[in-house]
Write a protein that binds this DNA or RNA. Structure first.
Lengths: 199, 199
DNA sequence: GAAAGTCGATTGACTGGTCAATCAGCCAGG
DNA sequence: CCTGGCTGATTGACCAGTCAATCGACTTTC
């Protein structure tokens, strides 16, 4: 008889953590909440992770590395700078659509947490900004973007606009239908690119 | 003789709280840190505020109401939608330039803290988005902005771009000279408005 | 082939330290 | 001498992380 599936408790704990962090926020969740949600004993969390922090770190690193690869892969694939930015926006929005709770946790608890995890993961976060800035720079070199703007500034604006839209969805401040997601992707690219176009 | 200045301990506590919150983050600061920084007894904090939360709330409400008035006043004053957006961007950036620590605290601990104070103050935060959306809508009515974009989406992108630039300064990811501040204001307005212009 | 041994996974009661909030009283100015 | 701004030691709750014990699957030994 086939061995029973090992019920991968580690994964179970990570998935439960996403749900609980999204619901209550990192600071407000007790380790026992994670264990309960995962249907697992308290101590097991510490068997797989050194600390509560490490659970969040793991979630962030897992997801962010995907984002980084996606951006860098997009850049390597070629195409117009504008198309590249569109691909990046699309990837981020779709990440949210696919797993809103995970993206919420990453944005709220890491990316925007300047005093805790944000500082810890600054290098990786920064790398995303820089990759986007690279795309902008390429557009400036080939003349599709005006070249009197610091690429890093443009990158931050672009990324910030996207993140704020996600935040709007998280807070339910703006509507979140499939059309809205698609419209949002387009809005961001249109505003940034046409705004960057030579006069 | 004039009455000795009452040394306004309440103000002293608020100002100290800004510094400490900015340095360590809200969660990591103990009430005793605030008292020490203010040069005041521990208990006095509780004489003026019901709780540690209320200190942060007070800081936020004080500043945010200024921002709201500024936006709404700008709107009332007239001028092109583009000029209005420029004024809003300018006000926010200058707020940061004038008191970076306070703006850092407000952004990091409230505006972007979806799980704690962000939820509490959602109505006020939302009101800012809506005021900006109003300006966009006006531009759509008078034909300076394309009208196929949800004003609320444009507003979120605009505000998000600005906030991300502030975050860049907070994290020291992007340079922060006077020229940089001015350039940033312009960048945001240019990208958003020209991107919103009719094709 | 069964008894003993091994080892990682799993359990959950417990502890140590941290801090927000309280409160009983102090003191200076009127 | 009385009032209210002011003091700071104390308390009580809370919770991350520890640890000793159990489990169960698999191996070794006789």
């Amino acid at each position: 008889m086939a061995k029973a599936p090992p019920a991968d408790k580690r994964r179970q704990i990570l998935d439960a953590a996403v749900r609980v962090f999204a619901r209550q926020g990192f600071h407000a969740t007790r380790v026992s909440d994670i264990a309960d949600e995962a249907g697992v004993a308290y101590g097991l969390v510490y068997h797989y992770f050194r600390s509560k922090d490490e659970v969040l770190n793991e979630l962030f690193v897992e997801r962010w590395s995907l984002l980084l690869s996606a951006i860098e892969e997009t850049d390597r694939m070629g195409g117009s700078p504008r198309a590249k930015l569109a691909a990046v926006a699309s990837f981020i929005v779709d990440s949210y659509r696919h797993d809103p709770e995970l993206m919420q946790v990453i944005i709220v608890e890491v990316t925007r947490a300047a005093n805790s995890f944000g500082r810890t993961h600054l290098p990786e976060i920064r790398r995303a900004y820089e990759s986007i800035a690279n795309i902008v720079e390429e557009g400036q070199r080939d003349g599709t973007f005006r070249d009197d703007i610091e690429p890093m500034f443009a990158s931050m604006s672009f990324y910030g606009a996207i993140e704020q839209l996600l935040t709007g969805w998280i807070f339910a401040v703006i509507p979140a239908s499939d059309t809205d997601f698609e419209q949002a992707k387009e809005l961001v690219v249109t505003t940034i690119c046409d705004g960057l176009g030579p006069r």
